[in-house]
Amino acid sequence: MAPALHDNVSRVKRINRLGITTFVGLRSADVVLQYGLLHWGWGAKLIESFGGHPLPRNQVVSTLTEQLLPYHSIVLLMAVGSSLKQIITMLAVSEQDTPPSSALVIALFNTVFNFINTVFSLWEYTSKAPAHTDPIIPGWSQSSLTVALYMAGILTELVSELQRTYFKKQLANSGKPYANGLFSLARHINYGGYTIWRAMYALYCGGWPWGLTVFSFFFYDFATRGVPVLDIYLTERYGEQWKDIKLRVPYRLIPGVY
Rank of each mutant, 00 (worst) to 15 (best):
F219S: 08
T224Q: 12
F215A: 15
V227R: 08
L230E: 09
R187Y: 07
T213N: 14
G207M: 14
G193S: 07
Y194D: 00
F218V: 08
Y233E: 13
G193N: 01
G207P: 13
W208R: 12
G193M: 00
V229F: 00
A186T: 00
L203I: 04
F215Q: 07
A186D: 00
W210P: 06
A186M: 00
A186C: 01
F218T: 07
F219T: 11
R225W: 10
D231T: 10
R225I: 10
W210A: 08
R198A: 10
R198Y: 03
Y204Q: 04
F183E: 01
V214E: 03
L230N: 12
L182N: 00
V214M: 05
T213A: 14
I189W: 00
I232H: 14
W197I: 11
A223G: 03
G193L: 02
L185T: 02
Y204R: 09
C205Y: 03
W197H: 15
F218D: 03
Y233R: 13
Y191D: 00
F219A: 07
V227L: 11
G192W: 07
F219Y: 13
L182G: 01
L212R: 10
R198T: 07
A202L: 07
W210H: 11
F218H: 12
G226S: 03
Y233F: 15
Y233Q: 12
T224K: 12
Y191R: 07
L230T: 06
M200I: 15
V229H: 05
P228C: 13
T195S: 08
A202H: 02
A223D: 08
D221T: 09
Y201S: 11
Y191H: 02
T224C: 12
D231H: 12
I196D: 14
P228M: 08
D231E: 12
F222Q: 12
W197R: 08
G192N: 05
F218N: 06
P209R: 05
